[in-house]
Simulated assay, not measured.
Amino acid sequence: MADDEAHFGEGQQVVHAVTFSSRYVVAGLLSGALVLTVPGTASATWPPSAGTQGNTKQSGSSTAGTLVSRVTYSGSVRSGNGGTAVQPVTDWTPPACWYEPRSVAEFRDYVETMYTDTINTPGQANYAKAAVGEFRDIYKDGKYKNYNEDEAADGSWWVAVQNPDRLDDPASWQCSDLPFWVANNDDPGVPQAVTPKILAEAAYDAIQLPDTKVTLAPADITKVNLATWAWLDKTDFKQVSVTASLNAGGLNIQATTTAKPISLKLEPGTSDAETYPASGVCTLNPDGSIGEPYARGKADRTPPCGIKYLRSSGDGSYHLKATITWQISWSGSGGAGGDLPDGTFGTTQDIKVQEAQAVNR
């Protein structure tokens, strides 16, 4: 069997190349074993939004030799795979793979290009040539005839793609069915068939959240037993959104996922400290801010959000961790929408704590 597989990033798109064997094509190898799945019953109502599938002009565009996810992202999007993704607070992960439709022309061009490139590559192994030939025969002269060109207006080919942010996740190989034909408005019959909700979950993975560096008073250097005020200004601390869209194979859907900050958790970096409030969790104020800025005249007050260190950090620093919890919701095509698991996103900043015999306020 030829273990020919590749993944290539293209901006916010993922390229998914198929792996071949002499009897079938699979999405990948996991622990040295072939991973195959059997189509099941789709979990969502189909079509995912009324009037979005069927009687759509077929496009002849293709990306030679690869199956590229047509999902695009806009809004507060992380650059490539850079940055830190939102971390769900529950045992939940965004989808690692899904199935998308392709027009007859796109799928035909993909298979023919792959076949030609493999056959004409100098030194290519005979078993690889045989495998790609058998794969091509399924759609050209075997189970299907000439890629179903005579039915181009009546349906689409559905293919597996992977979430570009989940390429290292073994679950990304679960979408391992051969490309299959689906008539317009028919249920594809696989749980991972792309829907607005799947797009919303993929957008969850793509969100770029703002930095969570907390403003402190005193800043960077404080004193033992001196209350340190902490706050996040609403102008730098606001909700963000990412929209994921798919227009391919007669399917035109989208979903917008929005992250709204709801609380800040302070972890002092040492047990020799007290937090305000005692839980260390500072909730959102009515105006969208968290905590309260320090000002002259507040020295004798207890901060609504803050820390008091009880021991010096010596020659080093304490690592204050500030973690924001974000409430995640989504809305999509056909009026779909709902909530996704809350997410967290945090950073660490160094705080130097000095001894002081007395503090003048």
Rank of each mutant, 00 (worst) to 15 (best):
A203V: 04
W157H: 10
P303S: 13
D300Q: 11
A227W: 11
R102G: 03
T113N: 12
I119M: 02
T344L: 09
A2L: 03
T116I: 01
D339I: 03
I262W: 04
Y110M: 00
Y318Q: 11
D233M: 01
P101H: 15
P286C: 10
G82K: 15
I324S: 09
Q239E: 13
T344K: 02
T66I: 00
A130F: 12
E292F: 03
G334S: 11
V14Q: 14
Q327I: 02
S176A: 03
K197D: 06
P210V: 10
G334C: 04
D168L: 13
S176Y: 08
S103P: 14
I328S: 02
Y24K: 14
A33F: 06
N184P: 02
D187C: 05
W181A: 08
G54I: 07
A2R: 13
A128H: 13
G288D: 03
A248D: 13
S172K: 13
N247L: 06
A96T: 15
V359R: 01
K260S: 00
S333K: 09
Q87I: 11
D220C: 10
A17V: 10
P88K: 07
A299D: 12
D109T: 14
A255N: 08
D177C: 00
G83Y: 10
T113I: 09
K238A: 11
L34V: 12
T256A: 05
N225L: 05
H7D: 12
G335T: 00
Y139N: 07
L266H: 08
P88N: 08
Y204L: 14
S76P: 03
R23G: 11
D342R: 05
G280F: 01
L232S: 01
T45L: 05
S329A: 00
T270W: 01
L30D: 00
A33Y: 10
V359M: 04
E5G: 04
K140N: 07
R23N: 10
T84K: 10
E151S: 03
A17F: 04
Q58G: 13
T45H: 02
A96S: 15
Q327R: 15
D186Q: 15
P218V: 08
L320C: 02
A219D: 12
V15T: 05
P88T: 00
P101L: 15
Q357Y: 10
K234C: 09
L340H: 10
N55V: 06
P48W: 00
A160N: 09
T66M: 01
N146P: 07
V224K: 14
V182C: 07
T195L: 01
T37E: 01
S69E: 01
V86A: 01
A273S: 03
